[in-house]
Each structure stands twice: as structure tokens, then as C-alpha cells.
Computed example of a mutant assay.
Amino acid sequence: MKNQEKHHSNVFMRWFLDNKFSIFLLNLLLFFLIIFVFNKISFVLNPFWAFFNAILPPVLLATIQYYLMNPVVDFLEDKAHVPRIISIAILYVIVVILLVWIIISIVPVLQQQTNSLIKNWPNIWNDAQKAVESALHDPRLNQVRGNINQTLSSAQDKLIKAGQQSITIAIDNIFSAVNVLTMIFMTILTAPFVLFFMLKDGHNLKPYIARIAPKKMQASFSELLHDINEAISSYVRGQITVAFWVGVMFAIGYSIIGLPYGVVLAISAGVLNMVPYFGTFIAIIPALILAVMNSPMMLIKVIIVFAIEQTIEGRVISPLVIGSKMDMNPVTTILLLIGASSVAGLGGVVFAIPVYAVVKIIVTRVFNYYKQVSSLYDEVRPESDKKVIKNDDKLTSK
């Protein structure tokens, strides 16, 4: 009887208590159980989420500016031996001067072209409809004319309904709009103060956070923080730099060919370029529509400008600015953007790649640690190596 109980105890120890896979499943079950419990008491966390949503915009804006300005501050402090506070003050003055120049020179042109585009958009839309109708009278389209007309009418109905819904939502959410404007004002007001202290004391943040980990893990945890910081900074600086030069190239190209509303289209192309792979192609659509309404020759010129911009961006700017630091396959990036857009909309598209990079770094380090401590990944030596080792042992013993 005792032997049987001892046998059952050994089986239980071997299959549950001493089994790493069972322990992993129990930890996984505990993890999801904790998530389930927090989901049931989510009302307790509502004040914390409200607080987090309130401070997120200024902190996010300050973080983006930090990654752009911190390398300059570090360079002035390390190479030119300029005190850090003075370097920050110099950068603030330069930024203010640039903002004043943009407000004086670019904003009036942008406002004029935007107002003109809004005013003339009904005429542009009518011209587009006439162009499509004239194209439909081509005898070569007799077989598909009915399907095309049906598709166009369906698209027009959807656009009208979407416009009506947007107006209704805008009227119903006037107070939400006021809240958004208040949030924007508070973000612009508080972000410079947050940025100042991030630039002043940000280099001390990583050692401070590393102290949270146990002493044996502080070195590896510090390396993890360094890799995450490098990945995020590379992405932020790279995307903003590439977006800036994309806007400049489109502005120069549209000015050369004389495309109407070139400044608005160039700035929108630069902003949309923050969305990898899809942004620039989305931004080129209104340019193509305006080019078609202008003349067939203008359409060819816009396509040439787009081809030149894509060549320079893909062959020169992106390799120099971003390079292969993100180490992401294009297929992975595209699938990630599609999935993130379906889950979190525009925010998911913007933050999908940096979040993926951070998660990838953490998972890779955890997996490497697991390979070191697990016996599953011990290298099995070939028989020839074993014989060599045995012979070496014999010679050593002699």
C-alpha cells in the first residue's frame, strides 16, 4: 500500500510539480485569470485610465520632441562642452524662431490653398463626374457600362450618407469638440515644460529604472532598456526625418510642374508618410484627381514626380536615415499594419511598429534567457566530437 502511494506521489511530482511545461501552463492560466479579474473590476481602474488619458498627449508630444532634440543636446554637451541647460535653451530659441517663420511664411499659403480647395471642390467633383460620364460613352465600354454606372452611383450614395452622418455626429458632439480643443491647448501649453525636464534629466532615467530589478538582473535589464530606447528613438527620428524630406520633395516637384494646391498636397503627403507603405500612396490619390481635372499632361507630370520621389526615398533617404535598424520584413510590416488598423484604427497604424519592436526585443531576450537555463536547447555533440574528447582525456591522464 505504501509503495503504491509512493508511486502515485512520484508520478504527481514528475508530471506536475517537477514538470516545466505544467508549471508554464499554470502560470499562463494564472496570468489570464488575473486579466479576467481586473476586467470584472474595471470600474476601480476608471479614475486611473482617465488620469492616464489626460497626461498621455503632452507626454507623447514631449517624447517625440525629446528623441529629435536629445542627440543635439548630447552632442553639444559631450563634444562642445556646452552646459546642458544652455544647450536646451539654445534649442528652444531655434525652435521658436522656426515656428515664427512657419507661421509667417507657410501658414498663410497653406490657409489660402486650403480655402481655395474647399471652395472649388464642388466644381472639381462635377468636372470629375463629367469626365467619367464622357469616358463611359466610349464604345469599348458597352459591355461593362452598366456595372460601372451601378458602382459609381453606389459610391456616390455612400459618400452622401457618410457626409450626412459626419454632420450629424459633429452636431451631436459639440461638447466633445470643445474637450478636444481644450486637450490640444493644454498639450501645447504643458509639453514644453515636460520636454525641458526630459532633456535635462532624461539620461538619468535608465539607471534609475534599472534599480528596480534585482541586483543580479540589473545589468541585463539595463541592456534591455537601452535596446528598447534605441529602437523607439530610431523609429521616431527616422519616420519624422523621412516624412519631412518627402514633403519637401513633393513641394518642389509640384511647384515645378505647376500643380494647383501643391503645398497642401505636399504637406499631407509628408504627414501621411508616417504610415509605412500605405501613406504616400494614399496621399497621391488627390494629386492624381486634380491632375486628371487639369490635363492629361499634368497627370503624366504628377506620375513622374511620384516616381522620382519614390526612387529617391527608397534608394537614398530611407537607407541613410532608417537603414535596417528596425529589422522588419516588409510582409510582416504590412500584415502588422492591417491587423493593427482593424483593432485600434489610426492609432493602431501609427503605434503598431514601435510597439511590435519593443515586444520583439522583450520576447527575444526572454527566449534567449530560457535557452540558457533550459535543458531542451543543450547542444548534442556529434559522435566524432565525443571520440576526440575521449582521446584528449586519455592523453591528459597519461
Rank of each mutant, 00 (worst) to 15 (best):
I167Q: 06
F250T: 02
D201S: 14
I256H: 04
P192C: 06
G345K: 04
F52Y: 15
P58M: 11
Y277G: 06
V100L: 12
V302K: 01
S397A: 14
I41G: 13
I86W: 14
L259Q: 04
S374W: 07
V11P: 00
M249H: 02
V132Y: 14
V132H: 15
T63L: 10
I124M: 15
F36V: 12
I41N: 14
I171M: 11
S341I: 10
F12D: 04
I289F: 08
I228G: 06
D393F: 12
D201V: 14
I104H: 10
V44Y: 02
L265W: 02
L299V: 07
V349M: 09
L346Q: 04
F185G: 15
M183G: 05
R211G: 00
V82K: 07
A231N: 11
T190C: 06
H7A: 00
N179K: 12
N329C: 06
K216H: 11
V96M: 09
I252H: 00
Y92H: 01
D78S: 15
K161M: 06
F48A: 13
M326G: 09
S116K: 10
V37G: 15
I148N: 12
P57E: 03
E133C: 13
K2V: 08
V271D: 10
V144P: 08
I169N: 11
E379H: 11
L110D: 03
I209F: 03
L28N: 03
I34V: 15
G262F: 03
Q111M: 08
V180W: 04
M293Q: 12
A357I: 05
I55A: 03
Y356N: 15
I90C: 04
A344Y: 01
N149H: 09
I232A: 07
D327S: 07
F16R: 06
S234L: 00
V11L: 09
M297V: 14
Q164L: 12
I389F: 09
E309P: 01
Q113P: 03
Q164M: 11
I169Y: 08
G253I: 04
S268H: 09
F281R: 11
A291I: 05
F306H: 01
Q65T: 01
Y369W: 12
A283R: 01
E313F: 06
D378I: 10
G279W: 04
D227N: 09
K206F: 05
A266Y: 05
M186F: 14
Q129K: 14
G270S: 15
Y66N: 03
P296V: 09
V359Q: 15
R14T: 12
L336R: 06
N329F: 04
V305T: 00
M13P: 02
E313Y: 07
E77Q: 07
A89D: 03
L189D: 04
F48K: 06
L272V: 05
I232P: 05
T114F: 08
